[in-house]
């Protein structure tokens, strides 16, 4: 009658339970690994860079002497770049999202645009650099300018913004749209006055995260020829420029280890800026997720 040998099951149970426990530990270990690396990375950078992080560091331009090297040009270059990227990518990205969510018919062309956007998100950033170099720097003759860099980076983060904005627009309850239409509002009035205001928190959150991605990018800007040794601030959109990641790259590639410490100081500034931007994004998300 006894089909299952209970004793055998019991003894196997012991090993199985032990196995489960051990492997739980292993999986936890793999999870913690990433965390440990993050801690080491941050610790190293802080201890290396903190010594160079003083007021002078923000006031000085690039220099051949580590103790005189500063991040002023790169810091303001990054701000200039943001000033180009933010409006360009937000306008095009949100426009695309609204088109796809509110106006586009469900046809082949729409599917094509959608697939195209998700593929664009997978193109290596350096390839965008090649595009920027050919189209903006050479064909449109913008030169190695803030404008060329900003437009290139706008295209790079466009897919991220479109996807975030689409999600935000999609999550606006249809009841709100109905209420507006039922008052005799036109489609555009409804989008402008109801859909967009309700979607703004999501759009901003996604937009800031995308922007912080752009601020940390190096490769495409190297391609379009952002300079690595700049001793002035950009004056207009057609000025040459450098940005923080490129300045950090430049310091990192120098053989003198003192410059590595300067690079670490630059990284602290860059990470602090990203931290601030991300915190703002999280704040916006938390503040508005209560409503709606």
């Amino acid at each position: 009658m006894q089909l299952v040998d209970q004793a055998k099951v019991k003894s196997r149970m012991q090993t199985r339970l032990k196995q489960n426990k051990v492997l739980k530990g292993v999986f936890f270990g793999t999870t913690i690994f990433a965390l440990v690396v993050l801690v080491i990375l941050l610790y190293r950078i802080l201890t290396q860079g903190i010594g160079y992080l003083d007021l002078q560091f923000f006031q000085n331009f690039a220099s051949r002497f580590p103790e005189k090297a500063g991040i002023k040009a790169a810091f303001f270059g990054s701000l200039w770049l943001m000033a180009v990227i933010a409006p360009v990518s937000l306008i095009i990205g949100v426009g695309t999202a609204i088109y796809l969510e509110e106006y586009a018919k469900k046809n082949r062309f729409t599917t094509f645009i959608q697939i195209n956007i998700s593929n664009l998100a997978g193109v290596p950033s350096i390839v965008f650099g090649l595009l920027g170099l050919t189209v903006f720097v050479r064909m449109l003759e913008m030169g190695r300018s803030v404008l060329a860099g900003g437009l290139t980076m706008s295209l790079l983060i466009l897919p991220i913004i479109v996807v975030a904005a689409q999600e935000a627009v999609r999550s606006v309850p249809k009841e709100l749209r109905e209420a507006s239409y039922a008052m005799g509002a036109t489609k555009w009035q409804t989008i402008k006055k109801v859909v967009l205001p309700a979607a703004i928190p999501g759009i901003l959150t996604g937009g800031i995260l995308a922007l912080s991605r752009a601020i940390g990018e190096t490769a495409p800007l190297l391609m379009i020829g952002a300079l690595t040794f700049v001793a002035y601030l950009p004056e207009n959109l057609l000025s040459g420029f450098t940005v923080m990641p490129i300045q950090i790259f430049n310091w990192t590639s120098r053989p003198q280890t003192e410059f590595h410490d300067v690079a670490a100081a630059g990284i602290i500034v860059l990470l602090a800026m990203l931290l601030i931007m991300n915190s703002i994004a999280v704040l916006i998300r938390n503040k508005f997720s209560k409503r709606l």
Binding site: A34, V37, L38, I40, L41, R44, I45, Q48, L209, S212, R213, I215, G216, E217, T218, A219, P245, I248, F249, T252, H260, A263, A264, I267, L270, L271, L274, N278
Partner: peptide
């Protein structure tokens, strides 16, 4: 997410110097 958001140049620096 933080780990994913760190710029690659920072990782490059980490690779070379650590």
């Amino acid at each position: 997410e933080v780990l994913a958001g760190i710029p690659t140049i920072v990782y490059g620096f980490f690779a070379l110097t650590f």
